[in-house]
Simulated scan of single mutants.
Amino acid sequence: MNLPLRPAPERRRALLGGLGALAALATGPAAFRALAESRGRRTATRAGLAFGTTVSLTLVAEREAAFEPAFRDAFAAIHAVEAAGSLYRSDSALSRLNRDGRLDAPDPLLLTMLHFALTLAERSGGAFDPTVQPLWTLWSESAAKGERPGPQARAEAVTRIGWHHVAADESAIRFTQARMGLTLNGLIQGFAADRVMAALAAHGIADAFVDTGEFAATGAHADGTPWRLGLGAHGDAPSDIIAPFAGFAATSGDDATVFSPDRRDHHIFDPATGLSPTALSRVTVTAPSGLLADGLSTAAFVMGEAAGAALVRLYEGCGARFTAKL
């Protein structure tokens, strides 16, 4: 069974700035709270569940009536991305592909993510590979038994990995090798941030902070204070802060889902070995799009600081912050 990646609470980074704590989780269609009024502008936050975690949107507008349609379409955008590529949903297009080995007339959102993933796989020399799902299945099932997969089991799983064994176009996506599996967990939350920001822009929302598991921001708080993003938060103390924060940011770290107490074994795999890279603890990439930030952070984590930084430099407007494992 293909199991989804389940981010642990430690992966959640903190939003810092003039608003203080975010509103409580909203549940109903009209359940948003105006948090502040400044210079005639209002701020509201709505949160919900997606990708196996909590997502939240903070919007600024001059009229309270502007919030509801913007929230509605932004969360609809998130749910559309889930329906296309989330492994948390057994009925998603990606889950059906993994079960059947072929998907006819694929969801255009799935194709967009997959085409980007395959291009990044090529540019990263295979360090980023969306076909690592067999490794996740192996490690999660072994962990459930209190075991660590041995060399033979890892080697067998690696034989079922290879981005070049995926054929994709508008008519179909198919695997050209048996017993393969795709995961887009290394980029889907960043892509969701892109779709949310597009939905908000369509409603004329020019000031927003978006947390889909990865982050996006535009404009500023209602009082004009820039957005700030805390990284690598442990408790209430982030280890790094991006201020001001605008654009997109994504972090890949060894503390999201772990298979060993020392975090040596975790959810990010080197497709060549079946093991987790051990040089880095965290990589944060800022980029002009969430898809790019998310994918590059995963690839750079696997490649290591020198090679990862070189990859990031290939993309205009991108930057990376590396934290070595202690």
Rank of each mutant, 00 (worst) to 15 (best):
N2T: 13
L3P: 06
P4E: 05
R12C: 04
G20Y: 06
A23W: 02
A24H: 07
A26R: 15
G28Q: 00
P29S: 09
S38T: 10
S38W: 08
T43S: 02
G52P: 00
V60D: 11
A61I: 01
F67T: 09
A74Q: 04
H79G: 13
V81D: 09
E82Q: 01
L87I: 05
A93P: 00
L94K: 07
S95T: 04
L97N: 03
N98S: 13
P106Y: 03
L109H: 11
T112V: 06
M113E: 07
H115V: 04
T119F: 12
L120R: 03
A121S: 15
G125V: 01
V132W: 13
Q133M: 07
P134E: 04
W139C: 01
R148T: 13
A157G: 10
R174V: 00
G181E: 01
N185H: 00
G186P: 06
I188C: 05
G190L: 00
F191W: 10
R195N: 00
V196E: 02
M197W: 07
G204A: 04
G204I: 00
V210Y: 08
T212Y: 04
E214I: 02
P226I: 14
W227H: 07
L231D: 13
L231H: 12
L231W: 11
H234W: 15
D236P: 06
A243W: 09
F245T: 15
V258N: 09
F259Y: 06
D262M: 12
R264D: 14
S276A: 14
A279T: 13
V283H: 04
T286F: 11
A287K: 09
A293D: 01
G295T: 08
A299P: 01
L311W: 01
V312Q: 08
L314R: 13
Y315N: 02
A324R: 11
L326D: 13
L326W: 15
